[in-house]
C-alpha cells in the first residue's frame, strides 16, 4: 500500500458517500445514470468474487464488501425507493455496446485463461467504460447539480490516483500490471473533458454547464 493507492481508495469511498448523500438529501436520483450504477454492480461482483478464495488483507476484504454492498444499495434506492425521480428517457446509452467488447477484450487479454482471471479482466475493462452512460446523460442534459459533479470528480480522481501508484510500484516492487494500467489510463482519459469543465467552472463557483 502506498499513499497514491490509499488516496485513490479514499476518493472512491468518498464518491459513494457523496452519491448517497445527494440521493438522500434531495430525495431524488435525478441526473444519475441507472445504467452506469448497474454496470458498477456487475464490475464489483465480477472482480470481488475472489473474496471467496483469495485473502489479501482485512482492509482489502472490507473495502470489497463495502463496494459490493453500497453499489447494490444504490440500485435499490434508484429502482425502488426513489423510482419516480429517475427519468429513463434520458438514460439511453446501449450498455450491450460496452459489455460485448469488454468480454472480447477479457477473452484476449488476461493473465491466465480460466474463469476467475477472465472475469477479473472483464471487470477491469468494464470499469474503464462504465461511466460512459453517465457522461452521455450529462452531455444530453448539458448541466448537472454541483453535488453530482463532486461525485463524478471523486470517482474520476480514484483511478487517476492509481496511475502514480502503478509508477511507484514499478520502481519499488518491479510490479507491472499491463491490463490494469491500460484500462486505468483509458478510464482516466474518459474524464478529461469533465475534469476540464469541473476545474474551470464548478471549482470557480459557477454552475456546471456544457457549451451548447
Amino acid at each position: 500500500m502506498n499513499i497514491f493507492r490509499f488516496l485513490g481508495d479514499l476518493s472512491h469511498l468518498a464518491s459513494i458517500f457523496i452519491l448517497l448523500h445527494k440521493i438522500q438529501t434531495t430525495r431524488s436520483c435525478r441526473g444519475i445514470s441507472f445504467r452506469t450504477q448497474a454496470l458498477y454492480v456487475v464490475v464489483f461482483i465480477a472482480r470481488y468474487l475472489d473474496l471467496f478464495f483469495r485473502y489479501v488483507s482485512l482492509y482489502n476484504s472490507a473495502m470489497k464488501l463495502f463496494f459490493i454492498a453500497s453499489s447494490c444499495y444504490i440500485l435499490y434506492l434508484m429502482k425502488i425507493r426513489y423510482r419516480p425521480t429517475h427519468d429513463p428517457s434520458i438514460d439511453t446509452f446501449r450498455v450491450e455496446y460496452l459489455l460485448a467488447p469488454c468480454l472480447i477484450l477479457a477473452l484476449i487479454f488476461n493473465y491466465k485463461f480460466n474463469f476467475a482471471e477472465v472475469l477479473w479482466s472483464f471487470s477491469i475493462w468494464l470499469e474503464a467504460v462504465a461511466i460512459l452512460p453517465q457522461l452521455f446523460m450529462l452531455q444530453r442534459t448539458g448541466e448537472a447539480e454541483n453535488i453530482t459533479t463532486h461525485y463524478l470528480a471523486a470517482l474520476g480522481a480514484y483511478r487517476a490516483l492509481y496511475i502514480p501508484n502503478w509508477i511507484y510500484r514499478y520502481f519499488t516492487e518491479g510490479l507491472v500490471d499491463p491490463i490494469a494500467v491500460t484500462a486505468g489510463i483509458v478510464q482516466t482519459g474518459l474524464y478529461l473533458d469533465f475534469f476540464y469543465v469541473y476545474f474551470t467552472k464548478v471549482l470557480q463557483g459557477q454552475k456546471f454547464e456544457l457549451p451548447a
Binding site: 493507492r5 481508495d9 472512491h12 475472489d50 483469495r54 489479501v56 488483507s57 482489502n60 473495502m63 470489497k64 463496494f67 493473465y111 491466465k112 482471471e117 477479473w120 492509481y162 501508484n165 516492487e173 518491479g174 510490479l175 507491472v176 500490471d177 490494469a180
Partner: peptide
Amino acid sequence: RHPSSTHDEL
C-alpha cells in the same frame, strides 16, 4: 514480477 497471481488492488 508478474501480477497474475496477486490482484491485491481494488
